[in-house]
Amino acid sequence: MSTTTTTPAVRVERASSPVESFLARHAAMIPSFAAVVILVLLLAGAEAFLRGDFITARNMSALLLDNAYLLILAVGMTFVILTAGIDLSVGSVMAFTGILGAQLLVSGIPVWIAVPAMLAGGAAIGLLIGVLVQYFNVQPFIASLAGLFLARGLAFVVSLSSIRVEEPGVLWLQQTRFRLGDWYLTPTGIIALLTVAVAVFVLHLTRFGRTIYAIGGNEQSARLMGLNVARTKVAAYVISGFCGGLAGLALTAYSGAGYPRNGIGTELDAIAAVVIGGTLLTGGRGYVLGSLIGVLVFGTIKTIISFMGAEQAWMQIIVGALLLLFIVVQRVIVARSERRR
């Protein structure tokens, strides 16, 4: 049974309504729209519950500031998940590069060497994972698990305890506030938003980005179409590792220190944010902007919980429940589109 089982379809283009043709073009956006709806509901609900004390310039500005590192990780994770892979190493890579940078700065290495070293360290671990996945047929899960172990161990090799960062260049990233009224933006926030912008450009306006989508849609097809699958897949993991390094920088600036225990379980937060933002874990469908929304949903839930004084434990449970909801919804979408074919 190698023949495709299909229904003979009528090949007449139906004169479709604008709504239908919009859906035909943008069906993949529906989960991301759902994330926007959830975000709006969360914000509105919190605003109503807290009697207008929630959606303030201060809170909303802090939302980006507090989650800049997560946003950067989620962007890298989006690349990997779009190729139908996964990267469990990012939390540990963030810790490793953070403590590495702190150690280098404390040892008197100038910042213009230390920061590129952090980024290169992250990218190198990403490269290792990518090579294992692409050239040694290791499942992404296991390959990135090795990356997780390696980065976490290396973090402790660099230092067993936290290292304060006094370097003004790094602290500037965090302490500077570009203000507009009560709104403000820190350089870390700008870095995170720039990362998003660059990722949007790469994924939607370059052949490399489209190849990422093609691989996630059908790797075999992508190969038969003559696209460079191997290079692109490895690059996705390198990008994720690089983002891990960048997040390490952001987190170091945020906390004013490198700490080898940072980011335990953060990879799960990043995956959850990406999935909540509407990217399918099976690859090929999703948007970086969706991941931005996912991170904001994540951050908003966290803020709401701390405002309500509830247990932080609810955070994990709510995120888990949201993840489940999205997975089941995606499963239904995929099943339906398969049946349609």
């Binding site: 799960l268 995956i271 932080q312 434990a313 429940a321 993840l323 489940l324």
Partner: peptide, 18 residues
């Protein structure tokens, strides 16, 4: 399986904390 068990991996510790 990876995704299905990820849900509990995330939420389980929250339940334990509660």
């Amino acid at each position: 399986p990876i995704i299905a068990t990820l849900v509990l991996m995330l939420a389980g510790r929250g339940v334990a904390l509660l």
